[in-house]
Each structure stands twice: as structure tokens, then as C-alpha cells.
Design a protein around this nucleic acid. Structure first.
Lengths: 367, 367
DNA sequence: CCTTTCCAACAAAACGTTTTGCATGTCCTG
DNA sequence: CAGGACATGCAAAACGTTTTGTTGGAAAGG
């Protein structure tokens, strides 16, 4: 395999100076070269398969066309792929590439990673968190624009994007209310992050809008995984007056709630309706019936973060007026919501239309 | 914020030439500088917060310390995170950074992405696939070492790493056999990739080793997701002589099999034992009882791929003798395997020891 | 016919490093 | 005390681009 072809090779082959080659191939300096030579140079460059060395041009231009994506555990959580993909797509479309680092939550490591990124002269950094939280930008990130992903800046100095937790929860709860439920449980999670409080507020808001009185017994705080969902659901379902609808903090908990319901002999959605937040597809589509859940728009958030970052890189003025965005979260209707038993069948018709999954081959054999 | 500090700033502040600064900070040229000046320079450099510009040093050294990770849909599949993480960790530990691109399976896009990577002077490329397959390295990847991840090179020219499908399947089936099962169904998947054939061979091998005759009716080919698992399990379980143990191609299918079993009133593992391949934790840990499954070592494969790639970069001789590795896949025992009903309790004792999950709070209320 | 203007092309400097080769001066060795 | 060996430091070239400033000549204007 022959040595890499550089701009001098093209200049020699085309019989012009390197300056002219550069101008001919550049969008901004076309004017300085005769259209005919220009075409000739382009043709020669294409024939030789010339591709400019970005290290060299980056050095000269003080622009690397590299972005850093720093995260705590983004590469290990299932959604993370979506975020990264959104980021990568947005970057690539505008000519940038993304370098990914994942500290696994280790601050010291993160510090070294960021400094490595900076040594590579990244033009900007997306600082991402696995779960929506408020934080201050670490001090080692300096000299380049930053955008926060799934996080908010306590100082309000930098742009950020995160899901609108309150609205998402209100949507999920309203779905149950609209189906006719009045007694709605909430399996929340037990960590002190914005999502916990935001979704609780959303739960309150939805109830209040429907004129339903808040009942403290119907809210429980559990670990945010399958077992937490199982525990929480069992707790709420064994109340003297159990809920007919259940809102779970996130999909894995909903999976636990399904299991709890089955173990109690309750059928979903006939005996118990469930909604949740995540749209973790392997769960929401895999369960039977499918889980109606509010999707966290990870891909879109990733896209937005990079897109905003590039705006700030290309126009430094924009960095002075940071934008703080809360993303809308759309509901994905599957089969886990139906009117409560107490309602007449006629009330249920409009809702049934949204349960579109094909019937499970043998579900009628259920006890 | 002040301008970035370069090697000249250090040289001025320390009162020595840039040459000396470079030598003082370099591991290889320490000898050319007095230990005392060396310490002085290091101290000044640290005080100013000097960090070398990798673009510049890369240009000079013809080494970017950048690696490309090219994948089809790695960023969108849940395991992908593990692979990427393993790759990233291995790279970072040796001073490299990874640039991630994901073509979503679009060849034309992939071609452009690779050329962009090459323009950035990556020192090597990991070419990864979401599912284990055999392929030839795309021709646009040229001039740098390549390692295949979750794929094998048809031409045998480059190193590769992938799971040992046959051994993995044998392990999963053997787990059922060891528990005493003789009639074992296999819900395979219906795509023509190495995993399909390899796991079928593993299934055969395990049966043969145990002297169990192969029964064609016990193998079914389904779509590789939850619904496929449901369909396949229902099919096999409604045979005149149904299996007592079920091996699923992958975890989502096992989830479907759980659902099918429940819909038929069968209890796991008492009435039906299930094993699978993936260790997709949200499923395998989330299900009740936990799923005994053979883990695909994505993190380790990612690590190995990058580690090997760096070996080949640092010693070009190694690239001439490509290594083709099939990774061992360890079984993760949870609660989905028990002896078949027909066996006496005494036979089951040693196996019960491996079912370690705590009991579900209300499972005894099951019909 | 002599300026002026403009077009097309080029040489050279710069981006921030690393490394080669050279120039001191000191210390030994004989 | 002459000679070489060694220790320490520096100047300059090189990596592959982009851009600034300049030049020679042709076209245009008086």
C-alpha cells in the first residue's frame, strides 16, 4: 500500500502550487483561482484520492472538528445508546466527529478524561448524565463551549436539555384518569433527584386537574428496578381500598408491577391498569399486554445538545445567552390501560381503539 | 479566560529553550537534560497548567492517539453500551481515545464515515457488528490496522473476536440436562447468521454427549424477539409429548416463553425449566424467577478488540499474524432451572442450591 | 501610449509540537 | 597538559495544511 497522498502530491500532479490546490478545493477561496484550473485541480485530486489531513488543518485553523461527549455511565445504560446516537448523528451531519468517554461515575477519572479531551483540542463538550440532575459544570472544563445533557446547570451559565418530568408524569397519570380511574397509585423511586420530585408534582397536578383528592397512602417510594416495582405494587394492591390504576416511576418497575399483579391473580388491563415512564422498548413492547408508557426522548435530546453546542461554537455570541430546554415526552399507547371494572362497557369504547396489539395466541387459557 | 498555554510559554517562564522543555517532559529524552532543570521545568509546566496540543504532536509524530469504532447499529442495541465501554476502557488505559460512528446499517453512509475517520488520522479501526457474522473488511478501510468485533473475516486477513456460539449453546443445554431433563425444546431464531447455526450445533452436541436422541419436532425457528419466544414456546408446549426444559436463542425470547408458560398455567421452574443466551440483565434479573442464561461477554470482547488493535499498532509485525478469537461465555445461574417433575426430590438437591433468589413476597397466592 | 485595475497564481509564514544535529563546556584519562 | 568522552543545552527543520502578501501580466481607462 502506497504512502498517503498529500496536498503536495496533488500540486505536483496538477502542475500548480499547493496554494492554488488549497484555494481550488476550498469553498471560501474559490475566487482566487481560474474556474478552469479549479476544475482541473479537483479532477486530479479526485483521481489521486486526496483527502486533507485534519490534524494539519486543525492545527492551522484552531478547529479540530472534534466534540467530546463526557458521561457518567451513559455507555452502560440501555438508553444511552439512543442519546449517543442522536449526538453522533447531529455532529456528523454538520461535519463533526464525537469522542466518547465514560467515567463510570468516578470523578478523578472523569477529570483526567476531560483533560485528555481538551488536549485533543475538542471544539466543545457535551456533559451528559444518566439520570436527570442539577449540577455545576466541573471546573476542569474550560475554554470550550459546554452543553448539559439530561442535566441542568445550577448556575444557569450553560445551555442544557432534559426531559420535562412534571409534564411526563402528568401525561401518564392523565391517561389513567381519562380511562375513568379515580383511585390511582404511584410507585415512585427513592432517590433524591429532580425526576423524583418532578414526577410527584406531575402526579399531583393531574389529580388536581381532575378534582381527585390526593391520598398519601397511594404513593410509595421504592428502588428504581424490577424488584422495587414488585414491592411497591404489592404494597398498594393490598390496601383496604386498592387502586385500579397504577403509575410507575419507570418501566422496569412496571415490569415488577405486572409480576405482582399476576401473582395476585389480577389481569392487566382488566383488573389493573398500568402506565409508566421510559418506553424501554424491550419491556414496553415485550410485556403482555404491551405497556402504555411515556417515552423519554433520548435520541432527540442527544441531537439537540450537539446541535446547540455547534451553534455556540460557530457563533460564540450564542454562548452568552444559554438556553435551558425541557423536552416534551410523548405517550406511547399499548395495551395496559382500560376502564376500571366498575364502569359500564360503553364507556370503554374509545379507549379500546388504542389497544392495538394482536391477541396473544393462548391468552384465553389463563386461569 | 486566558489563552491556552503552549510549550513556548513554559519555555519563557522557565528560562530555557522549547527543546529543553520538550525533552524535560518527555519520557524518552530525559537523558538530554539536567535532572535539576528537568525538575524545574516540570514544576513550571505544572504551575502554568501546560498540556501538550495533541493535534500538533500528532502531526509531528504521525500518530493521533485516536481510534475509530465503526458499527452498524451498535449504539442502538442494548448490549452495545457494554462493547463500547470495554473498548473505551482499554483504549483510555493505554492513552488512546475512541471516536464512535454508527451507520445504522447504511453502507454509503458507513463509507463516508470511515473516510472521515481516516481524515482524522485514526491510528486504527475497530469494525463492529451488532450480531456475530462473517464478512470481508470494506475496501475503504485502508492504511491502518483493523480488528473485527462480533464478526469474523472471511479472508482471514485481520484479527477478530466473537462469542463461541457453539460452546455457549452447549453450556445452556447442558444445564438443563444436568438437572435431569431429557426432553428439551429449542426456540431458535430464523435468520441466517452464524449464531443460528452455531447454537443449533451446540444444542446437538449437548444432546449427543448425554446420549439423548435428537427430535426434529423440538426445534422451532422464530423471530428473535419476545413475540417469537411466545409463539415458539406455545408451539413446543402443545406437542403431544411437550418438553420439560426449554432453551431459547436469546433472552427476549425467554421472556416470551415465560409469558407463554404463564398463559398455559405452567410454573417456572417447577413445570418448565428455561435457559437462554444473552444475560440481558433487565430481563434475566427482572423476571421472576430470575433467568438462568449464558452471558455474552460484550464488555470483554470490546476490551480485547481494542487491546489487540493497539498491539498491532505498536508492533506492525503482529498485524501479519492475525488472531481469531472465540470468547468463552459463562453461565449465570438464577432460578429458572429445576429438575423435571418426574424425578424424585432427592435428585434435585444439588440443583436447588443454585437457585438463590429470595422468594417473591406473594408468590404462594398464585393460582 | 501610459497608467490604473484586476485576475491568476505563487512564495512564505504560521499553527505547536518533536527530534536531529550541533555547540558549548566540564571532566576524565593518559 | 593535550585529547577525547560526556553532559547539557539550543537552533532549526519537519509534520500538512491555510492564509497573507506579493508579483507578473492582461485588460481597461484616460
Amino acid at each position: 500500500m502506497m504512502a498517503k497522498v498529500g496536498i503536495r502530491d496533488v500540486s505536483k500532479a496538477a502542475g500548480v502550487s499547493v496554494t492554488t490546490v488549497s484555494h481550488a478545493l476550498s469553498d471560501v477561496h474559490q475566487a482566487r483561482v481560474n474556474p478552469e484550473t479549479r476544475r482541473h485541480v479537483q479532477e486530479v485530486a479526485a483521481r489521486l484520492g486526496y483527502a486533507p489531513n485534519r490534524l494539519a488543518s486543525g492545527l492551522r485553523n484552531q478547529r479540530s472538528y472534534l466534540l467530546g461527549l463526557v458521561s457518567d455511565e451513559i455507555a452502560s445504560t440501555p438508553f444511552a445508546g439512543e442519546m449517543v446516537l442522536g449526538a453522533q448523528d447531529a455532529a456528523y451531519e454538520r461535519g463533526w466527529l464525537i469522542m466518547l468517554v465514560d467515567s463510570g461515575g468516578n470523578r478523578a477519572l472523569e477529570e483526567r478524561q476531560v483533560s485528555t479531551l481538551l488536549q485533543h483540542q475538542v471544539d466543545g463538550i457535551v456533559y451528559a448524565k444518566m439520570y436527570h440532575q442539577r449540577l455545576t459544570v466541573p471546573r476542569e472544563i474550560t475554554g470550550v463551549p459546554v452543553v448539559l445533557l439530561d442535566a441542568e446547570d445550577l448556575d444557569g451559565k450553560v445551555s442544557s436539555v432534559a426531559p420535562d418530568e412534571l409534564a411526563a408524569a402528568r401525561t401518564a397519570v392523565k391517561e389513567l384518569i381519562d380511562a375513568g380511574h379515580r383511585r390511582i397509585g404511584f410507585v415512585n423511586q427513592n432517590e433524591d433527584i429532580p425526576a423524583t420530585h418532578g414526577r410527584l408534582q406531575g402526579y399531583h397536578a393531574a389529580l388536581a386537574e381532575a378534582g381527585i383528592e390526593y391520598d398519601d397512602d397511594l404513593v410509595t417510594f421504592e428502588v428504581p428496578d424490577v424488584s422495587g416495582g414488585r414491592d411497591g405494587a404489592l404494597k398498594l394492591l393490598s390496601l383496604p381500598e386498592p387502586p385500579t390504576g397504577l403509575f410507575c416511576f419507570r418501566d422496569p418497575q412496571a415490569l415488577g408491577a405486572y409480576e405482582a399483579a399476576h401473582s395476585l391473580g389480577l389481569r392487566i388491563p382488566d383488573d389493573l391498569s398500568i402506565t409508566s415512564i421510559d418506553d424501554f422498548q424491550i419491556i414496553s413492547e415485550g410485556l403482555w399486554p404491551g405497556l402504555t408508557t411515556v417515552a423519554l426522548p433520548h435520541y432527540e435530546m442527544g441531537r439537540w445538545a450537539v446541535s446547540r453546542l455547534l451553534d455556540e461554537i460557530e457563533d460564540p455570541e450564542k454562548a452568552k445567552a444559554p438556553e435551558r430546554l425541557l423536552f416534551e415526552c410523548p405517550i406511547v399507547r399499548r395495551g395496559s390501560v382500560a376502564p376500571p371494572r366498575s364502569l359500564s362497557p360503553s364507556d370503554s369504547e374509545q379507549k379500546d381503539a388504542s389497544r392495538m396489539n394482536t391477541l396473544p395466541p393462548a391468552s384465553e387459557e389463563l386461569a
